[in-house]
Design a protein around this nucleic acid. Structure first.
Lengths: 343, 343
DNA sequence: AAGCCCTGTGTAAACGTTTTCATTTTCGAT
DNA sequence: ATCGAAAATGAAAACGTTTACACAGGGCTT
């Protein structure tokens, strides 16, 4: 009753050939005669045969699966990156298995084990941390792993990132060019490499303009809108010490700061300039449209998968004369959330 | 040189037992003696053995993979749903393979073939369309498939959705209660079932309030911010025929309408009330904060995976005395983008 | 006419598991 | 001591492929 699924053997029987011939007809068509090839084709159609990928992969010792480690799949920031990766992978005949790590080292380790257990052929890390099992023996044989989004200091694996330091430098400079000198920075969480790099760029810009750095003007957020609101309330509370411009490490936090600014009656950009980071779709539609650093997320994903496929294609374990990370250029998009210093 | 990966045979040799015993020690610990169990454990530790999942799955004729079909993974709307599904799946020991269909029926068919080829054990559809291979023989044996987000009319498969008709009815009524009578509706793309249902709810609300429906007050968008801007410009161009309230089928379009409204100098909600749909995080942080229908996306995902696991757990091909779709309740979140009718 | 290569095909091994079945060992009850 | 049941183990089949190897036949070249 329960319709048995057709195997290669059924096809062979139907076509009156051996299973080897069926396999060849499918994967090396030029080595099998025209007539049998046709017979096999009709037999396949008749039986509705679909190759059992599991068996095939076992034999070939591959999985056709690329594992993608994401800290939080619920974060829309990754959507476009995923999209770029998925596109490239599926073109090359790979599937993308997304692993949501929730920033849990244990989950990271679990997923990393997929590499060993042949459940995945390669891995892309968006989580900015090397899973424990990988960290152990990176020296002898480089695993097929690519790092994207957040560089991992001291890790020689192929990496594709944006230059966060430089991008933050440019953003801060934009405010300096507008005449601002009291410029605050709302950063990401401590320990995050993105945070470090962007703070560095911010301070570098101040320094190169001869502005003395005030530690009180740096607020640590977590990239979320809510943390931006908190930052805004903290920074703008006292009219005396209030900055005239804020440079944020995410668009969400920039929006939060603007919300807080409006609460205390400040007009943007007349009384306060705000710069974001990422250029998410909502940045352009906000009131006012937000000046921000555009991060080409899709291209970032595309580059990452390209790097990986490269690595998978050539058997040569990557030219260990490291070429350094691939840097995707960013672009400052000037909109209406920034203007001349009110002073 | 190249470190060979350890198989079950290596473990068996190391422990001085047969491979059968190793397998049993791992999967049926109670059937093997304490002492050998320990010997096997140390052997595993010594060899660094990890079971080859591919071989295991071939033998067990399963894949441990749940296929998730998404129309566009780049769309943040799905992020939270994915998150909910992923959580439930991984708790049950399944992996989630995300298939980005780009609304391409061919890609849908390709992915659906994964079911036949044992590359996936089950499937969740978020794309609102039955892949061709599935549509063929749904009658005899119901495949392990669950539909979420967009119901597929005339399809008996387990489904989890929100009541779009009712939600739209409630949203429109909210505007009617505020005294509005010229109420526009910005809908999704034609052919989309969400569009149909939400338009129905909108018209039902008008009708039940005795307001005559003007076809010119419905604008077809595509859920995006840009289409919302276009809708706003079209609807608000002529001050004579201009509506006093707009009910949108997505928060993005609501934001777009507000952008267009501000262009022509309208104040929200004083001159124009706007309602969104979904309650994305940005809805609350917009200026003004947007009144919208909250769609519990994570719960939607959780329900979908729960339904599927249910189906997978019990061998019984689902109680065909259909219980009808599972409805996740929505909630109207009233913020400051809606107010009394200016007239 | 004998030898040879070339094309096309079949046989069987291999991939790494799980599990059935048979066999050995253990051990308590007679 | 002996028997028998229960417990523990091993041998081998099976899952559905791909591919190395062998082999058959046919058309060349000598």
């Amino acid at each position: 009753m329960t319709e048995k699924i057709a195997t290669i053997e059924d096809v062979a029987r139907q076509a009156g050939v051996s299973i080897a011939t069926v396999s060849r007809a499918l994967h090396k068509p030029n080595v099998v005669s025209e007539t049998t090839r046709e017979r096999v084709q009709t037999a396949i159609a008749a039986t509705g045969y679909t190759a059992n990928v599991m068996a095939r992969n076992l034999r070939l010792n591959r999985s056709g699966m690329i594992l993608l480690l994401v800290p939080d799949i619920g974060n829309p920031f990754f959507s476009a990156i995923l999209s770029g990766i998925e596109k490239g992978a599926s073109q090359a005949g790979y599937n993308v298995l997304i692993g949501d790590t929730q920033n849990d080292p244990e989950r990271e380790a679990t997923y990393a084990a997929y590499l060993r257990s042949n459940q995945a052929d390669a891995m892309i890390l968006l989580n900015g941390r090397l899973p424990a099992p990988l960290a152990k023996a990176p020296a002898n044989a480089t695993p097929p792993v690519v790092i994207a989004c957040e560089r991992i200091p001291g890790c020689a694996l192929p990496t594709v990132i944006i230059d966060n330091d430089e991008a933050s430098f440019v953003a801060t400079n934009h405010l300096i060019d507008l005449g601002h000198t009291r410029i605050a920075h709302v950063s990401g969480p401590t320990g995050n490499i993105l945070t470090t790099d962007r703070v560095t760029g911010y301070r570098r810009a101040l320094k190169s303009a001869g502005i003395t750095h005030e530690p009180g003007l740096i607020y640590r957020g977590d990239f979320s809108i809510d943390s931006g609101i908190a930052a805004g309330r903290a920074l703008l509370a006292d009219p005396k010490t209030r900055p005239t411009a804020v440079c944020c490490a995410s668009d969400g936090m920039a929006i939060g700061v603007i919300v807080a600014a409006k609460e205390v009656g400040l007009r943007i950009p007349h009384d306060l300039s705000v710069v974001g980071f990422d250029d998410i779709p909502h940045a352009a539609a906000y009131d006012p449209p937000i000046t921000t650093v555009r991060q080409p997320r899709r291209r970032l994903g595309e580059q990452a998968i390209a790097l990986l496929l490269d690595r998978l294609g050539s058997k040569t374990p990557p030219s260990h004369g490291e070429t350094g990370p691939v840097i995707i250029p960013t672009e400052l998009i000037v909109r209406q959330s920034t203007g001349p210093c009110p002073g």
